[in-house]
């Protein structure tokens, strides 16, 4: 599904990713953990070209998205993204937030798009908020709407960039519930997170990153119980 080969990314002088190689299969739930500054968010953001890699290739379903010939907008329609800061459109209500892209990009009628939107709102448990503006929602509600908005394009891959890091503690659970639901439905996902308990339980595979490289990859439960690498062990002993 996702093939990353020899990926490098620098911001000016600072080299953030130093040669990442990774294969992600269909229906995998890959959780990425690691210390701040390890490059995990940058790695995630390269997968839909929110960041332009300095070197290396990324293939999504066989399409090389780093090639200049690829229409990245078409690829992004199939790769949903959820941001730490939600990034709902504040000048639109919840329904408009969800239906804008399907109407404009997939050519759905307003009615069709709204039907899809109500199904998704049911899924995230927020049907009654359809006509509200984002400023009337709590952080957890905003993030659940952001997930519904991404799902409205019917993506085959979902990317989560620290989806619960900007939330008050009591709202983390409601968002993780929604993500867990997606995992159970077999959505291919990549999740950058600091929620270790969640990573262990929902992830089918865990990547530990440090200093721009993937240090360890494997079954989350095994890595948490018995890390092979010294750096993983030190990190886990600090956060658990």
């Amino acid at each position: 599904m996702i093939e990353v080969n020899n990926l490098y990314k620098s911001f000016g002088e600072l080299e953030v990713l130093k040669g990442i190689n990774e294969h992600i299969m269909k229906e995998e739930v890959v959780v990425v953990i690691g210390p701040s500054g390890s490059g995990k968010s940058t790695f995630l953001r390269c997968i839909n070209l929110m960041e332009q890699p300095t070197k290396g290739t990324i293939k999504i379903k066989g399409i090389d998205i780093t090639s200049a010939k690829t229409n990245i907008n078409q690829v992004r329609q199939k790769v949903g993204m959820v941001f730490q800061q939600f990034n709902l459109f504040p000048h639109m209500n919840v329904m408009e937030n969800i239906t804008l892209a399907p109407i404009k990009l997939k050519g759905l009628t307003k009615k069709e798009a709204e039907e899809v939107a109500y199904e998704l709102l049911d899924k995230v448990g927020l049907r009654e908020k359809a006509m509200e503006y984002p400023n009337k929602l709590s952080g957890g509600q905003k993030q659940r709407i952001a997930i519904a908005r991404a799902l409205a394009m019917n993506p085959e891959i979902m990317l989560f960039d620290e989806p619960t890091s900007a939330l008050d503690p009591e709202m983390v659970k409601e968002v993780l519930e929604v993500i867990r639901g997606l995992a159970n439905e077999g959505m291919t996902m990549m999740i950058v997170t600091h929620e270790m308990g969640f990573a262990k339980e929902v992830g089918t595979r865990l990547l530990f990153m440090d200093e721009g490289k993937i240090i360890e990859s494997g079954n989350p439960k095994e890595i948490f119980a018995n890390p092979k690498e010294e750096r993983t062990r030190i990190f886990l002993s600090k956060v658990l």
């Binding site: 941001f83 990034n87 804008l100």
Partner: peptide, 18 residues
Amino acid sequence: LDKGQMEAARSLGMSYSM
């Protein structure tokens, strides 16, 4: 404006001008 607005729109597949 928050640059996250542009990112969110682009991540859904919209072009820069859209």
